[in-house]
Each structure stands twice: as structure tokens, then as C-alpha cells.
């Protein structure tokens, strides 16, 4: 899923200075699963905005709504009438949701309530880890299912680097060294070929370095 976390409130407050009627739009997709932007978080934020505005001595209306996924044009469109009743929208979707809502009403300010963080999952309750950087050219089949792009701080293809110590990454001892794990897993499987060969430079043009990406599926297109 797309993992996100709430923006610090003061940052949001800065953007909401002139607002009078705020619509807080939650999303029932990924951000609801990681408990950053679902229905409950939207209601909390709406209450928080009211409380903050009240304390500032200029009360604001703040209303929470939620759609199953903001990244579907139909669901995004369905928020149009509610958006019309507000003067500012705070989207608790990922960056995709914010962008889609902004397209629904290009004349309106649609603010991000979250920082969209990474493609990852829940490793234990309340702990989320990055697993995919969406580079557009998956190599997990050769690296034992452990991604050197998403999980090596230096994006190494011929690791581990000299900073790998006791299976930990030099950048953050809380983080496992991806290449240590790759080496262990492939060795255990008896698949050391990839470790020995000189992995060639990656083609980053599929990774967003080639410009914004677009996929067209003729079989699905209308």
C-alpha cells in the first residue's frame, strides 16, 4: 500500500489561516489501512481544526467526508458538491488523491493533510516499512525478493557496501542491510550466481527519471 503520515498540524494551520469552511476528505484506500487518512482520521482532523480555529478566536466550520478511493475519478467527482460548500479542502488521500481532488475543482485550494511516504506495509502493529520504490523494472526475482532499490540506502547493485556491519545498515542501525539479507537468502538457496556476476548499471528511465510515467492498456481503454 501507499504509506503516509499526518503532516504536523502547524504546517497545515499555516495553509488554513484564511479558511472559513474546511472540508476534510478522507480516503478509504491505502491511507485508511495505515491509519493516516481514513474516515476516523478525517473526523479527528475536522474536530482538531475546529478546536484550533476556536482557540484562535475565529471559528471555522470543518466537516469530514470520506470516499472509498480518491484515486478513482468517479469517487473524486462525487465529492464535488461537498467541495462546493467549502472554501478549502484538506485531502487525507495520498498525493494521488490530492491531485485528483484538485482536478475536480481546479479553482479551489486542495491542501495535502498527509505526507505520502512510501510503498510499504505493516511489519508489526504501528510499524510500517518501505518495500517498493516503484522503479518500473522489477528485479526481485534475482535478488531473493529483497529490493536493493527500496531497501539499500545507496541503491547498490553489487552490495553490500563496506558499511554493512552485523547485518545492519550504516545509515540507520534500526534498518537491516538489504544486501546482507540478499546475500544470506540467495546463499541459503544455493543461488549465488547473481552475487558473483557484475550487475550492470540500472536503466533509471523507467523509474521516473525518464519523466512522468503513463501506462496505456488498449484492452481496457474506452
Amino acid at each position: 500500500m501507499i504509506v503516509a503520515q499526518a503532516k504536523p498540524f502547524p504546517e497545515l494551520a499555516q495553509m488554513l489561516q484564511d479558511a472559513r469552511r474546511v472540508l476534510v476528505a478522507g480516503c478509504g484506500g491505502c491511507v485508511a489501512v495505515c491509519q493516516a487518512g481514513g474516515e476516523q482520521e478525517a473526523r479527528i482532523l475536522a474536530e482538531a481544526i475546529r478546536l484550533w480555529a476556536g482557540e484562535q478566536g475565529r471559528p471555522m466550520e470543518a466537516r469530514a467526508v470520506v470516499v472509498p478511493r480518491q484515486c478513482e475519478p468517479e469517487w473524486a467527482q462525487s465529492l464535488g458538491p461537498a467541495m462546493d460548500e467549502a472554501d478549502v479542502v484538506v485531502s487525507l488521500g495520498c498525493g494521488v488523491g490530492v491531485g485528483f481532488l484538485a482536478e475536480v475543482r481546479p479553482g479551489m485550494r486542495v491542501l495535502p493533510g498527509l505526507n505520502t511516504s512510501f510503498g510499504g506495509g505493516t511489519v508489526s502493529p504501528g510499524v510500517f516499512e518501505e518495500r517498493c520504490r516503484m522503479c518500473g523494472d522489477c528485479v526481485l526475482g534475482r535478488t531473493g525478493g529483497i529490493c536493493p532499490v527500496a531497501r539499500c540506502a545507496k541503491n547498490l547493485w553489487n552490495g553490500p557496501c563496506g558499511g554493512s556491519a552485523d547485518g545492519r545498515c550504516e545509515v540507520d542501525p534500526q534498518v537491516s542491510c538489504a544486501w546482507h539479507q540478499i546475500a544470506q537468502r540467495l546463499t541459503a538457496r544455493g543461488e549465488t550466481g547473481f552475487l558473483e556476476e557484475i550487475a550492470p548499471p540500472k536503466d533509471w528511465s523507467t523509474a521516473g527519471d525518464g519523466g512522468p510515467r503513463r501506462i496505456v492498456r488498449e484492452d481496457l481503454a474506452s
Binding site: P8, F9, P10, A13, A48, L51, W52, E55, Q56
Partner: peptide
């Protein structure tokens, strides 16, 4: 912690 940010 949130309350502190809200000015409460």
C-alpha cells in the same frame, strides 16, 4: 501532543 499544536 496534538493539543499543544492546536494551542490548547
Amino acid at each position: 501532543r496534538l493539543l499543544e499544536e492546536l494551542g490548547v
